[in-house]
Nucleic acid binder design. Structure first.
Length: 572
DNA sequence: GCCGTTTTCGGCCCGACTGTTTTCAGTCG
């Protein structure tokens, strides 16, 4: 039995939900949620830690009690304490809390007074007009819940960062067009550049909140106005994306930007520091008593806590505050550091653009090299290259390089890792390449041992340089295949191989947590786009964002180096 | 349930909006 970190986190989150419904000590509830978040963010397997006899108390928010529950879940798959709670409070009630308008108190009332346990029970009671009779329920809430259920219930839809960018751009422009509007900035997880966002949090400075909000809710993409006051409003766009707007005065801009950028855990940690210094920090500024003492810029907010500016991408309370206090913040990699792209396709396999077009587009981006990595023969559907066609392409690249100025095309290939872990092309052709990118595109269903062994075996081939999109996941479409990434990364480090951060917004593979793990083990990464056209080259920014979330610095990145230096690193 | 420059007990972040209330609880972020 494999117990995943997500399984443990799910049990702790359910425990928190059910205890909250029971009216337990809110700080106890918070302790379960905090522990769940800690475990979810952990790049190593908690089950493996338990097996190795590691001290779980070392993890933040995990004390003796929760450490015991973790060990129990790892050993048995479940927690007796949770089962105990579920005998009193059905687990399905946790699902009811996902309904907008229902929190722990109302769910408790529904359960106690009407015996409601499921969404179906809730629908029945709402249709019978029974909800309106309950304390602190009314006809408005009853109708709202029923409408939500008939719409298909709560779907915690998340949007890819690239999709969110589309909506954010249009909205930002629209808001800026309103007279009297000052700054307009999208905060929240969007600003922290998470791979997906659940909603957009937009912050605006303006003289009149009401005028700004009236303008906001009149946006032609608005489907529904969820809430509308004088300083904030919430709407749902026709595409289903929720957008929250907050209006603050200019002197609160920095404090509000910090507050609404989050993450929540980061904010709490900073606020605690301010509080310890006798100051109050909220979205309106920094206050001593009731006197405003700052908050116009984010720098002022951090200064209150004696901290330097912390980049939004790492504000997750994963050690950034301690690093800032110690003057050890990473100098995060930026798009400007990137010297070339190491994973792109052309018309020769399944791309849309020619070699020359790709080279020219890369030149425009200021790159000094571009690795051409068309698919190998196994990928028949992608018109993959066999040794003969690849040889012809290599000759063509040689000829093209003689004409090109300011950029060099690197001879490469995205070679399939076959089910047995061998590579899809013979060494006789691979040895002609400047570098070889290897990837899994088949047999995703293999068990974790076999899949991991397959990838490690591929790296045993001395021509293998970079493992592309190491988990194969497609965000919102396909789960990662079962693979022990830690073992893959360690094997890569031992063999002088590297791992890719695929910048395609549907992949972003490695994820942020494993980028950080790679850095900690001294494994360098390639940030690549997997572009299938000249337009695809622009996805580099998403890869860089993901790497930044993983604390990656230019020195950790293969393609932040000039080709002469990169070439030496690739020799194995 | 965790945690400690307030250290083994007593705290634990804070404000806006809604609906239902007639001064505020519940929810949300």
């Amino acid at each position: 039995m494999t117990v995943h970190n997500a399984d443990i986190a799910a049990q702790f989150n359910r425990m928190a939900d059910l205890l909250e419904i029971e009216g337990a000590n809110p700080f106890r509830v918070r302790a379960y949620r905090r522990a769940a978040a800690t475990i979810e963010d952990l790049p190593t397997s908690v089950a493996a830690m338990v097996e190795a006899g590691a001290d779980l108390d070392e993890l933040p928010g995990i004390g003796p009690d929760l450490a015991g529950k973790i060990r129990e879940i790892c050993a048995t798959g479940h927690s007796a304490a949770l089962e105990q709670v579920e005998t009193r409070t059905p687990a399905s009630l946790a699902g009811l809390m996902a309904m907008p308008g229902l929190g722990p108190k109302r769910v408790q009332v529904l359960h106690e007074r009407l015996g409601i346990e499921t969404i179906e029970d809730l629908a029945k009671a709402a249709r019978a007009g029974k909800l309106r009779e309950l304390p602190r329920f009314g006809t408005a809430l009853e109708a709202k819940l029923l409408a939500e259920i008939e719409k298909g219930g709560p779907v915690a839809q998340r949007f890819k960062i690239s999709t969110a960018e589309d909506f954010a751009a249009g909205l930002t422009e629209y808001l800026k067009s309103h007279p009297g509007t000052g700054q307009v900035v999208v905060a929240g997880s969007f600003r922290r550049r998470k791979e997906t966002v659940g909603d957009l949090d937009i912050l605006v400075t303006a003289r009149s909140g009401k005028a700004t909000i009236d303008h906001f809710v009149a946006y032609d993409e608005v489907e529904q106005i969820v809430a509308q006051g004088t300083t904030r409003a919430t709407v749902i766009l026709k595409a289903g994306l929720q957008v929250d707007l907050r209006v603050v005065p200019a002197r609160s801009y920095g404090a509000a930007l910090h507050y609404f950028t989050g993450s929540k855990a980061h904010n709490i940690a900073v606020r605690k520091i301010a509080q310890a210094k006798g100051l109050k920090l909220n979205e309106y500024g920094i206050f001593r008593g009731s006197a405003y003492v700052g908050g116009r810029t984010e720098e002022e907010v951090f200064a209150v806590a004696d901290l330097p500016y912390i980049e939004p991408e790492i504000r997750e309370d994963r050690g950034e505050i301690e690093a800032a206090a110690a003057g050890k913040l990473p100098q995060l990699v930026t798009l400007a550091d990137i010297k070339g792209d190491l994973h792109v396709h052309t018309k020769d396999s399944d791309g849309k653009s020619t070699l020359k077009e790709m080279a020219e587009a890369a030149t425009v981006l200021g790159y000094s090299y571009l690795a051409i990595t068309d698919h190998s023969q196994y990928a028949t559907i992608a018109h993959g290259l066999d040794a003969e066609r690849l040889a012809a392409q290599l000759d063509q690249i040689d000829r093209l390089n003689e004409q090109l100025e300011g950029i060099v095309l690197l001879k490469s290939c995205e070679v399939d890792i076959l089910p047995d872990g061998t590579l899809d092309l013979p060494d006789s052709i691979l040895k002609r390449l400047d570098l070889t990118v290897c990837a899994v595109h088949s047999r995703f269903e293999l068990d974790i041992e076999t899949q991991t062994g397959r990838i490690v075996r591929a790296m045993d081939n001395r021509h293998c340089n970079i493992i592309a999109h190491p988990t194969g996941r497609l965000i919102g479409e396909r789960e990662a295949y079962a693979v022990d990434l830690e073992r893959v990364m360690l094997a890569a480090k031992e063999r002088g191989c590297f791992i890719e951060v695929n910048g395609h917004p549907s992949r972003l593979d490695l994820d942020d947590v494993h980028c950080r793990a790679a850095k900690q083990m001294g494994l360098k990464l390639a940030i690549s786009t997997d572009a299938h056209s000249t337009i695809g080259l622009s996805a580099m920014r998403f890869g860089v964002d993901q790497a930044r979330r993983g604390w990656i610095e230019p020195g950790d990145v293969l393609n932040a180096r000039p080709w002469s230096e990169l070439k030496r690193l690739l020799a194995r």
